[in-house]
């Protein structure tokens, strides 16, 4: 795995906030930056994830092409790689990766950092694009839940989810090669659903519990 272990450093991250969709006020200072003190090993890798969120916010709020270029530089080569592993030709993978990044731009306002890390969100776009462009099938998606009227998402929730996603990535990297390959093949489409093992060896459950709690709060607020 190429994932490097975080070094012990102290960083200060700016997060553009609030992301609340209830404040369509375009005149509001877009840089009401929340200063987040993040320290230690675990958080260093989460910094990268918080930076992606800030970049996506800049795309959404200011149509910021520099921020987009940064996201593009990181994700497009990995998207292409992922799509090629799934059996797509290099040309098609390139085209598909570009389409994914166009969708990232167009859907930036729908991203919610309490529900997903940017990497997760971009993966779901790529997955759907692959089904659409390569398998030429429709992709039935669940209906969206009415999340509004929104307050700005809680920074604790945002950071918690980013850290949990980071830990999941670390756990994947640390799996024995055979086991990791099996999971990768499931996502490349090399396994049928009945071949997918129900035991992954990954520490699953944390992200699920966090999102489940958020859904409970939402249901409660709706009643």
């Amino acid at each position: 795995m190429r994932r490097t272990k975080g070094m012990l450093t102290e960083n200060t991250i700016s997060l553009a906030a609030p992301r609340g969709r209830a404040s369509p006020n375009a005149d509001a200072p877009a840089n009401m930056a929340v200063k987040l003190k993040v320290r230690g090993v675990k958080e260093t890798q989460s910094d990268k994830r918080l930076a992606w969120i800030a970049q996506l916010d800049a795309v959404r709020d200011q149509k910021d092409r520099t921020a987009f270029a940064e996201l593009f530089a990181y994700f497009a080569p990995r998207l292409k790689s992922f799509l090629m592993k799934s059996g797509t030709s290099p040309d098609m993978a390139e085209e598909c990766a570009q389409e994914v990044m166009v969708t990232v731009w167009n859907k930036a306002h729908l991203f919610d950092p309490t529900k997903a890390s940017v990497s997760t969100w971009i993966f779901t776009i790529a997955r759907n694009k692959r089904i659409d462009m390569i398998r030429k099938q429709r992709r039935p998606e669940p209906e969206d839940l009415p999340w509004g009227p929104e307050e700005a998402p809680s920074q604790t929730d945002v950071i918690g989810l980013q850290q949990e996603t980071e830990l999941l990535g670390r756990a994947l990297a640390d799996l024995p090669a055979k086991q990791r390959e099996l999971i990768e093949r499931a996502y490349f489409g090399d396994l049928t659903h009945s071949e997918i093992a129900s035991e992954t060896g990954l520490p699953l459950g944390t992200i699920k519990s966090r999102i489940r709690l958020a859904l409970d709060r939402l249901r409660h607020a709706m009643n």
């Binding site: 990995r78 998207l79 992922f82 997903a116 890390s117 990497s119 997760t120 969100w121 971009i122 993966f123 779901t124 790529a126 997955r127 996603t165 999941l168 990535g169 994947l172 999971i183 990768e184 996502y187 992954t200 990954l202 699953l204 992200i207």
Partner: peptide, 8 residues
């Protein structure tokens, strides 16, 4: 989905 994001 998050696992898929990490694989990617």
């Amino acid at each position: 989905d998050a696992v898929g994001g990490e694989v990617m």
